[in-house]
Amino acid sequence: MKKLTEQEIQSKLEQLEGWEYKDDALDTSFQFENFKEAFSVMVRIAFEAEAQQHHPEWCNVYNELQISLSTHDADGVTEKDFKLAHSIEQIVDSGE
Protein backbone atom coordinates (compact mmCIF):
# COMPACT_ATOMS: atom_id res chain seq x y z
CA MET A 1 0.00 0.00 0.00
CA LYS A 2 1.35 3.41 -1.05
CA LYS A 3 1.92 6.11 1.55
CA LEU A 4 -0.20 9.17 0.75
CA THR A 5 1.30 12.64 0.40
CA GLU A 6 0.37 15.31 2.92
CA GLN A 7 -1.66 17.08 0.22
CA GLU A 8 -3.62 13.88 -0.52
CA ILE A 9 -4.19 13.35 3.21
CA GLN A 10 -5.43 16.91 3.79
CA SER A 11 -7.78 16.61 0.82
CA LYS A 12 -9.25 13.33 2.12
CA LEU A 13 -9.58 14.73 5.64
CA GLU A 14 -12.22 17.12 4.33
CA GLN A 15 -14.53 14.05 4.30
CA LEU A 16 -13.85 13.22 7.98
CA GLU A 17 -15.11 15.71 10.51
CA GLY A 18 -13.11 15.73 13.74
CA TRP A 19 -10.08 13.88 12.35
CA GLU A 20 -6.66 15.48 11.95
CA TYR A 21 -3.27 14.55 10.56
CA LYS A 22 -0.44 14.62 13.06
CA ASP A 23 2.70 12.60 13.71
CA ASP A 24 2.22 10.64 10.44
CA ALA A 25 -1.20 9.37 11.53
CA LEU A 26 -4.91 10.15 11.43
CA ASP A 27 -6.10 11.10 14.91
CA THR A 28 -9.45 11.67 16.53
CA SER A 29 -11.25 11.25 19.82
CA PHE A 30 -14.83 10.55 20.80
CA GLN A 31 -16.68 11.12 24.05
CA PHE A 32 -19.55 8.92 25.12
CA GLU A 33 -22.16 8.95 27.86
CA ASN A 34 -20.20 6.53 30.06
CA PHE A 35 -17.54 3.81 30.08
CA LYS A 36 -19.97 1.07 29.06
CA GLU A 37 -20.97 2.97 25.90
CA ALA A 38 -17.33 3.74 25.03
CA PHE A 39 -16.30 0.14 25.50
CA SER A 40 -19.26 -1.13 23.48
CA VAL A 41 -18.20 1.03 20.54
CA MET A 42 -14.61 -0.17 20.94
CA VAL A 43 -15.78 -3.78 20.61
CA ARG A 44 -17.69 -2.98 17.42
CA ILE A 45 -14.66 -1.15 16.01
CA ALA A 46 -12.44 -4.11 16.97
CA PHE A 47 -14.58 -6.52 14.93
CA GLU A 48 -14.48 -4.19 11.92
CA ALA A 49 -10.72 -3.62 12.27
CA GLU A 50 -10.16 -7.37 12.35
CA ALA A 51 -12.33 -7.81 9.25
CA GLN A 52 -10.21 -5.19 7.46
CA GLN A 53 -6.97 -6.63 8.87
CA HIS A 54 -6.02 -3.11 9.98
CA HIS A 55 -5.82 -2.30 13.66
CA PRO A 56 -5.93 1.10 15.37
CA GLU A 57 -3.74 2.40 18.11
CA TRP A 58 -6.19 3.55 20.72
CA CYS A 59 -6.65 4.55 24.31
CA ASN A 60 -9.77 4.54 26.44
CA VAL A 61 -10.16 6.42 29.71
CA TYR A 62 -13.67 6.26 31.19
CA ASN A 63 -15.94 7.77 28.51
CA GLU A 64 -13.29 8.98 26.05
CA LEU A 65 -11.80 7.00 23.18
CA GLN A 66 -8.71 8.30 21.38
CA ILE A 67 -7.80 6.69 18.05
CA SER A 68 -4.70 6.92 15.87
CA LEU A 69 -4.49 5.27 12.45
CA SER A 70 -1.39 4.69 10.34
CA THR A 71 -0.10 1.90 8.15
CA HIS A 72 3.10 0.72 9.77
CA ASP A 73 4.29 -1.18 6.67
CA ALA A 74 4.11 2.08 4.67
CA ASP A 75 5.47 4.22 7.54
CA GLY A 76 2.55 6.63 7.28
CA VAL A 77 -1.04 7.12 6.19
CA THR A 78 -2.52 5.10 3.32
CA GLU A 79 -5.94 4.45 1.80
CA LYS A 80 -6.29 1.65 4.34
CA ASP A 81 -6.37 4.21 7.16
CA PHE A 82 -9.06 6.25 5.48
CA LYS A 83 -11.16 3.15 4.85
CA LEU A 84 -11.03 2.23 8.53
CA ALA A 85 -11.63 5.84 9.62
CA HIS A 86 -14.83 5.95 7.53
CA SER A 87 -15.93 2.61 9.02
CA ILE A 88 -15.27 3.94 12.52
CA GLU A 89 -17.39 7.00 11.77
CA GLN A 90 -20.27 4.77 10.64
CA ILE A 91 -20.00 2.67 13.80
CA VAL A 92 -19.94 5.69 16.09
CA ASP A 93 -22.80 7.40 14.21
CA SER A 94 -24.95 4.26 14.38
CA GLY A 95 -24.54 4.09 18.14
CA GLU A 96 -25.62 7.64 18.89
Rank of each mutant, 00 (worst) to 15 (best):
K2I: 07
K3I: 07
L4D: 01
T5H: 08
T5S: 15
E6R: 13
E6D: 13
Q7D: 13
Q7F: 04
E8T: 03
Q10K: 15
Q10E: 14
K12R: 15
K12Q: 14
L13F: 05
E14C: 02
E14Q: 15
L16K: 09
E17I: 03
E17C: 00
E17S: 12
G18P: 06
E20G: 02
Y21R: 07
Y21V: 02
Y21D: 02
Y21H: 15
K22R: 15
K22W: 00
D24V: 01
D27Q: 13
S29M: 03
Q31T: 15
Q31W: 00
Q31K: 14
Q31M: 07
F32S: 07
F32L: 09
N34M: 05
N34V: 06
N34P: 02
F35E: 07
K36E: 11
K36P: 00
S40Q: 11
V41F: 08
V41S: 13
V41E: 09
V41K: 10
M42G: 03
R44E: 14
I45G: 04
E48N: 04
E48G: 01
A49L: 06
E50V: 01
E50A: 12
Q52F: 12
H54E: 06
H55I: 12
P56C: 09
P56A: 10
E57K: 12
W58I: 03
W58P: 00
C59H: 15
V61I: 14
Y62H: 11
N63A: 08
L65G: 04
Q66E: 08
Q66R: 14
Q66H: 12
Q66M: 06
Q66N: 11
I67L: 12
I67H: 05
I67A: 06
L69Q: 11
L69H: 11
T71W: 05
T71V: 02
H72W: 14
H72G: 08
H72F: 14
D73P: 02
A74C: 09
A74P: 03
A74S: 15
D75N: 15
G76N: 10
G76Q: 10
G76F: 10
T78L: 04
T78W: 04
D81Q: 04
D81P: 02
D81G: 03
K83R: 13
K83D: 12
K83G: 01
L84Y: 09
L84S: 07
L84Q: 09
L84M: 10
A85K: 07
H86V: 06
S87E: 13
S87P: 00
Q90S: 13
I91K: 04
V92P: 03
D93R: 14
D93A: 15
S94E: 14
S94Q: 13
S94H: 11
G95L: 09
E96M: 08
